[in-house]
Deep mutational scan, measured.
Amino acid sequence: MIVFVRFNSSHGFPVEVDSDTSIFQLKEVVAKRQGVPADQLRVIFAGKELRNDWTVQNCDLDQQSIVHIVQRPWRKGQEMNATGGDDPRNAAGGCEREPQSLTRVDLSSSVLPGDSVGLAVILHTDSRKDSPPAGSPAGRSIYNSFYVYCKGPCQRVQPGKLRVQCSTCRQATLTLTQGPSCWDDVLIPNRMSGECQSPHCPGTSAEFFFKCGAHPTSDKETSVALHLIATNSRNITCITCTDVRSPVLVFQCNSRHVICLDCFHLYCVTRLNDRQFVHDPQLGYSLPCVAGCPNSLIKELHHFRILGEEQYNRYQQYGAEECVLQMGGVLCPRPGCGAGLLPEPDQRKVTCEGGNGLGCGFAFCRECKEAYHEGECSAVFEASGTTTQAYRVDERAAEQARWEAASKETIKKTTKPCPRCHVPVEKNGGCMHMKCPQPQCRLEWCWNCGCEWNRVCMGDHWFDV
């Protein structure tokens, strides 16, 4: 396979590697080409510095992935760790964990309700045991953590790749202090920090972006993250068709209702045909949960890209028209025109101005929308079919299609509260000796007794199943 190397943020060049090629071997190839010592090179990928003893497969490097290699003399205490030698983080029983690669970060837990604080980093599902597709590297999971809308060759929703760059020099040479644990960490600028490894760059702020994971991409090709779309790892039924499908869209209502993408497309087109989208002054033209839940309008309007190009163009047109109407304007009634106009409040005669090729020149009556006339309008008909009709959803289907309910059931079956801080902690095999993952707590306690870890627990039921 081919990976592209950008040395000291210059133009990239291809390097041929195998899945079992080590990072140090990659350094040696680059060092020979650039005429520099291999031990002064640092390989940066997806916000993480890659260790010498890791392989291309370990690092989730795919065909035509772009890695950054910078030349920086080692500072005291760094060289041993980078070589894969006596790194205290690798000691058996050590409590410190390697910062998780962005290629394996899962933010789907952050669609849980606000009262489930902490689960994004504490609760991990076991539903990723799908067998890898044919042709994928051994052991590589097909679980997708992110979804994007690819405006490039795909023109559809695709699995996405999370990447990070330095907000100062805009190069992907920043190593994160810690990985993101929720969508806010990724979507809110300057929320996460790190250290830029580019020479002479003092940058410390992280800037995240997404790429389409279905095809090789260049540095400049980015895609918009659709953070309401998630892999259906909890096997929730769709609120409309009641099938279990994946991926799904999880509405931001209190129940976190789930809808499959085909039904979401149908829901949007139906509402669009009836012009029953909601115009929100802050958000724009949007839709609420299909069950009509309060405070559930979709905030990231790129989710409506699921409509496809033709329907999305209609959505944008109707949204612009609705904006004009909300501002007190009118639409030209001549067939084939429909231009938005903003006449004076007491102006009865409205002319669709033909300047700049935008208007048709038609003069019409503001009251009856017919060709302009003197005197009273002959008839004014009330528009028919403008009443909002509820999208029919079966109550039982709505009850079963809740992301929140599956989460709470998982928590109930696989977790116990920490005796000190009461945060839910998952036990997935292993011994009875637990350690609270909350940095402010870190209590060592017994899963069996529910009390602080002691010699009695150690001698009596340390390794009970």
Rank of each mutant, 00 (worst) to 15 (best):
T415A: 10
S145R: 07
T222C: 08
G77C: 14
T237F: 05
A134W: 07
S9M: 04
F277D: 02
R392P: 11
N254R: 09
C457M: 01
P281M: 07
P333R: 03
G429E: 13
F208H: 01
A172S: 12
L297M: 09
D274A: 04
P333F: 02
H279A: 08
R6Y: 04
E28R: 06
Q100S: 13
C238K: 01
E399L: 12
R245M: 05
R234S: 07
P437R: 06
T217K: 08
G85F: 13
S246V: 02
T175C: 13
V350A: 06
V456F: 15
G179L: 04
D184V: 03
L41P: 01
E98L: 09
E79Q: 10
L325R: 05
L187S: 07
Y372N: 05
Q100K: 12
S198R: 08
Y285H: 05
R234N: 10
G319V: 05
P437F: 06
E98H: 09
T242S: 15
C182S: 12
W462F: 15
C260M: 01
L341A: 09
N454G: 02
L187M: 12
C196E: 01
N144Y: 07
A398C: 11
L443V: 05
L41K: 00
L342K: 08
H302M: 10
Q317Y: 06
E399K: 09
K349A: 07
Y372Q: 06
K220L: 11
R314Q: 03
V423L: 11
G179S: 12
K32R: 13
K220H: 12
M327T: 09
S136E: 14
N273H: 03
A38N: 04
E321Y: 04
T217M: 10
H200W: 08
E444K: 05
G152L: 06
S198I: 07
A383Q: 11
T177K: 15
A379H: 08
G139N: 13
C352I: 02
T217V: 09
R33L: 06
C241D: 02
P281W: 06
G450C: 04
T222I: 09
R51L: 13
F364Y: 05
E310Q: 09
R396F: 13
S286N: 00
V465N: 15
H200C: 09
N273L: 04
I259H: 00
P99G: 14
F4S: 07
S136D: 13
E322L: 04
A138S: 12
H227W: 10
